[in-house]
């Protein structure tokens, strides 16, 4: 967080894209706050709802980056399908709807240690590589149109596309086989 604050301070000194940065600041605060609540709350259903907020913020980040189609897919697939699926999972496993003290592993400092270490390593490397260098500036980019994405998927990336479709089919069958009562 400190890093981003200092980044913010430095960025304001230069000529920068103010509205987009304000939007980014708001979105990222919401996303990070919701994510933190998501992993700490003692209520399973609340946790799922916080995830919804994170996913929506990520969709907003996509729009900031000019990736409209990814944002739309994020809303449709993640919020529309995956989240509902997860809520079904919560329901089917009969989690208590109220609070649950037993939701976290007692030795949570292990996880904390690993993730902080991870954060330090990642931040260090990102800062080293890009920081506030000029070549890391995102200026004057065009939104990537859906037509371009479609062209790209069905020409350059046709093989991964087919592979993903096979994977989805396999996952579909696999999920049915694993979960059915026999």
């Amino acid at each position: 967080m400190l890093a981003s604050v200092s980044l913010f301070a430095q960025a304001t000194g230069n000529s920068w894209d103010l509205p987009a940065n304000i939007a980014f600041g708001i979105i990222s605060v919401i996303a990070i706050g919701a994510a933190l609540r998501m992993v700490t709350t003692n209520n399973v259903v609340h946790s799922a709802l916080y995830l919804l907020i994170v996913l929506a913020s990520v969709a907003a980040v996509y729009i900031l980056l000019g990736a409209e189609f990814a944002a739309a897919t994020q809303v449709l697939v993640y919020i529309g399908a995956i989240l509902v699926l997860l809520l079904f999972g919560v329901m089917l496993t009969r989690a208590r709807l109220g609070g649950d003290e037993d939701l976290n592993y007692e030795q949570r400092w292990i996880g904390l240690g690993v993730s902080v270490l991870l954060f330090v390593v990642m931040t260090y490397s990102i800062w080293e590589q890009y920081g506030t260098k000029d070549e890391a500036r995102l200026v004057g980019y065009e939104p990537q149109r859906t037509a371009e994405v479609a062209d790209s998927i069905f020409s350059t990336y046709i093989v991964p596309f087919e592979a993903v479709s096979v994977l989805l089919l396999a996952a579909l069958i696999g999920a049915v086989v694993v979960a059915r009562r026999d």
Partner: peptide, 23 residues
């Protein structure tokens, strides 16, 4: 706007996710 700020946001979310998986 810098690329860095998006990468840092991603890093923060990633670490929170890892924390969630582990706890």
């Amino acid at each position: 706007m810098y690329l860095t700020q998006y990468l840092l946001l991603a890093a923060v979310l990633f670490c929170i996710g890892v924390y969630g998986v582990l706890t």
